[in-house]
């Protein structure tokens, strides 16, 4: 079959191919080269996890290390985008959005509307999400619902190497600002990825598994967990349909609603905090637009409403896992 590469290689390949295709595409962020101004090697890191390694050698001045100064470089990306470049910014961890949020939600997101449709700000902000690395409360969050809330932003959450490459190329070519959320735990995931450039349209959910009894909507790392749960449930004759929205803004409402129309049962799995999160949002959508199809209460599988803990014992309890998904499915599968 097609060639297999890692999730993080898929990201690198997307950046590489788009930088080769369009000289307006630039990359900036903290240590995306690594070593700038130091006495040792250039391209020392290629990103804190090596995702941008090798781009410096090919694209020189079009990839830039920045000071640890997120407001300045995210704002610079917005300004550069308004002036014809297509910047891809690496905001290392989504937890850091607090120090540059104004540039994202007051500037990037609103230019087009405030300026009466006369501006475009085609930036991509790549940022890591997710718990599971004992990285504690300020390096582990899944804050994509915060961005999803904001009109003018698009929010993309790949769950596999194939998705990562195709969605990132789409994000770079897209004329709207895109927040591109990469789950740390997926970087080492291997999967089939075409060598050629390709795009996956935003707002089109992936039906990961077809099934007839229960619909499971899951994002990012939770997709794999849902697949594990579904495989276990299948042995007991419970057939799960798994939907990965891939983008939370725009959200493919139709695929979710059509699935629930068929199954009558919904579990939403989200690693983000429960209040005002994607799980609540999708549950509200289904309650509003597919109420008549529901045969059981909607189950939400999320972490508790707490910061992400450090201790492994606590963090493992925090993260929704296959067992919790399986239990939620069983509860509503048996509901009469």
């Amino acid at each position: 079959m097609a060639r297999k590469i890692l999730f993080q290689q898929a990201i690198n390949e997307a950046l590489d191919q788009e930088m080769a295709r369009d000289s307006n595409v630039i990359v900036m962020g903290e240590d995306v080269i690594g070593g700038t101004g130091a006495d040792g090697e250039m391209d020392a890191w290629g990103g804190v996890l090596g995702v941008t390694k090798g781009l410096y050698g090919k694209y020189g001045e079009r990839i830039m290390d920045t000071p640890i100064s997120e407001s300045a470089f995210v704002g610079a990306a917005v300004g550069a985008a308004a002036c014809g470049l297509r910047p891809v910014c690496e905001l290392m961890f989504i937890d850091f959005l607090g120090v540059c949020f104004d540039q994202i939600y007051n500037q990037a997101a609103k230019f087009r509307y405030m300026f009466g449709g006369k501006a475009k700000t085609p930036i991509v902000i790549r940022t890591m999400i997710g718990a599971g690395f004992r990285a504690a409360a300020q390096h582990s969050q899944c804050l994509y619902p915060v961005f999803t809330h904001i009109p003018g932003l698009k929010v993309v959450i790949p769950s596999s190497p194939y998705e990562a490459k195709g969605l990132l190329i789409q994000a770079i070519r897209d004329d709207d600002p895109v927040i591109f959320c990469e789950h740390k735990a997926l970087y080492a995931m291997e999967g089939e990825v075409p060598e050629e450039s390709y795009t996956i349209p935003f707002g089109e959910a992936n039906v990961v598994r077809e099934g007839s009894d229960v619909t499971i909507v899951a994002l990012a790392r939770m997709v794999g967990f849902a697949e594990k749960a579904a495989a276990a449930l299948a042995k007991d004759g419970i057939s799960c349909e798994i939907i990965d929205p891939r983008t939370t803004s725009p959200l493919d409402e139709d695929t979710i609603l059509e699935s629930v129309e068929n199954t009558g049962r919904l579990v939403v799995v989200d690693e983000a905090s429960p209040r005002c999160g994607m799980a609540a949002d999708i549950a509200a959508l289904v309650a509003q637009k597919a109420f008549g199809a529901l045969e059981a209460p909607i189950e939400l599988v999320t972490p508790p409403h707490t910061p992400v803990p450090f201790s492994g014992v606590l963090e493992d309890l925090y993260i929704p896992g296959p067992a919790r998904i399986e239990a939620a499915v069983r509860r509503i599968a048996e509901y009469a």
Binding site: G166, E196, I200
Partner: peptide, 10 residues
């Protein structure tokens, strides 16, 4: 899915 994957290629 396979058809869509093909069609999405540049």
């Amino acid at each position: 899915d396979d058809m869509l994957k093909f069609k999405r290629v540049d």
